[in-house]
Every structure is written in C-alpha cells, then in structure tokens.
C-alpha cells in the first residue's frame, strides 16, 4: 500500500477541529492492541515483584473498610444527617472522589506512560491517555465492587437506581481527564505550574461534599458548593447509589454535557500543543 506522510512545522494547527477528534478516536481504535499490551505491562507488572502479588488490589480497599467498620462500631462519627450511616457515606464519597482524582492523575500521566519509547517510536499519544484511564478504571472497579459488597453485608441498602451508576462515571472522566491532559502537557515545560494545579486539585476536596453532606450550615461553604460542578457530578453519582430521590438532576445533566464539550476541547488542545513540546521530553 502506498501512502505518504508529510511533516511540516505547526502542521497540527492546520487540522480542522472536527477532524482532530476523528483522527484521535480513530487512532485510539487502531492502536487498541498497543493500549492492551501496555495495560498488561503496567497493570500486571506492578505486582509481579511482590509476594502477595495481585492480592494488593484487594488489600487497599479492605483497609478502607476496616477503618469504616471501626468508625461505625464506635459510633464516633454520626451526624445523623445522611440517609445511610455517616462512615458508609464517607466511604462511598471518597471512592467516587478517588475515581475522579484518578482520572485526573492518570490523564496527567499520559505522556510519562510512554517514557522509554516516546522518543524512539512514533505512535499516537492519545492511546496512552486511554491506556492510563482504562488501567485506573480497572483498579477502581475492583475496589468498588469489594466496598459495595462489604457495605451490603453490613446491612447498608442500595437504591435500585444504582444500576445507572456506571453512566455517572463518564462526566467524572470527562472533567478529570480534561484537566489532567492539559496539566500533563504543561508538566513537560512548566513543572511548577503543574504542581500548583495538583495542590489546587487536592484542595477541591474541601469544597466538595465528600467528607460532609451537601446540606452543611456554613454559608461560605454553601456558596462554594453551589458553584462547584463536582458537587453535582459526585452528588448525583452517590445519590443514585443510596438515595431514593436524586437532587439537582437538571443541573447535573447540563454540567455533564458541558464536561463532554470540555473534554473535546481538551483533546484538541492536547493534540495541537503536545506537538510543540514533545521534543523537550528528551
């Protein structure tokens, strides 16, 4: 088969924005084998050197559950505001928060995941984005299933709406990975900016109803919660699991749509900008 590749300066700027998405998604599909091979390498090999091996995937959430069980047993933390025991609420919330932050971290690690061959071989780097996030999702799923199972054994009741929970992962992915993708590119040339954003992301935890319920009485916090999209993205995901009625569904749907648009924009920014800085990875 004959085909020509042409390289010129600032070539990617000339690509139509819609075509960018087509190219990127097409690349991810074409390179699915690479995504799988790298996933296999990084996922399985993490545990290869330890005696407990893959069991570590189970140990981490179990430790969280032991914490939860302890708090539950002593009853020290029970504000009585939530529909399920507070520690269970926190456990679920922090899991979903971890899911979101994981998408952020995984995406910001996109280019690093190719360290060792990114300067040797040409391949579409967006494949690494999906590989990193897929890996994170697999880790999350394993620990989340354990958590849910344990909570059920302890008598926590889950809403039938829980079956919709997987859908709520998408907007979390869109938002988390959009920020991560951009931070990942920035990190190549401006580590300081990347670090500052990292810290800010961690601080987000305190203006998101993760450790406390959204009906807190602090007024400033109320305002912060109101304008924080994560309040809704996390809130609805959690409500689907535990509440009978889901709050702010209309706002949630709008925000979800916006996160998707942000994700598309981030993909374009990544596509155009990584080409400018990739040579600095040497």
């Amino acid at each position: 088969m004959e085909y020509k590749t042409i390289y010129t300066p600032n070539q990617r700027f000339k690509v139509n924005i819609f075509k960018t998405w087509y190219i990127m998604f097409r690349n991810v599909y074409d390179y699915r084998e690479l995504i799988f091979q790298l996933f296999k390498r990084d996922f399985l090999m993490t545990y290869k050197k330890s005696f407990l091996g893959i069991a570590w995937i189970l140990i981490t959430p179990l430790v969280g559950i032991v914490n939860w069980a302890f708090l539950n047993y002593t009853g020290v933390l029970d504000p009585g505001e939530t529909t399920i025991p507070y520690p269970a609420y926190v456990l679920l919330s922090t899991s979903i928060w971890g899911l979101f932050m994981g998408f952020y971290v995984a995406s910001s690690n996109t280019l690093n995941a190719g360290a060792g061959f990114i300067m040797q071989v040409k391949f579409p780097h967006e494949a690494l984005l999906f590989k990193e996030n897929f890996q994170h999702l697999v880790n999350f799923t394993i620990s989340f299933v354990i958590i849910i199972t344990t909570l059920m054994l302890f008598g926590v009741k889950f809403s039938f709406l829980s079956i919709f929970f997987p859908l709520t992962i998408l907007p979390l992915f869109f938002l988390g990975s959009s920020i991560g993708l951009i931070v990942g590119v920035i990190n190549i040339v401006a580590v300081d900016i990347g670090r500052v954003i990292n810290k800010l992301m961690e601080l987000l935890l305190y203006v998101t109803p993760v450790l406390f319920a959204s009906n807190t009485e602090n007024e400033n916090l109320q305002i912060a919660l109101k304008y924080n999209p994560l309040t809704y993205l996390l809130g609805v995901a959690r409500d689907l699991l535990i509440e009978k009625n889901v709050q702010n569904l209309d706002i949630y749907l709008i925000i979800s749509l916006v996160t998707f648009l942000i994700f598309l924009l981030a993909l374009r920014l990544f596509y155009v900008s990584e080409d400018r800085v990739i040579e600095k990875m040497i």
Partner: peptide, 10 residues
Amino acid sequence: IFPPDDGRIV
C-alpha cells in the same frame, strides 16, 4: 517523533 521547525519532509 517531533516536527521540523522549517521545511518539509515527505
């Protein structure tokens, strides 16, 4: 692997 700053490669 990275683009040229000037010129063209086919």
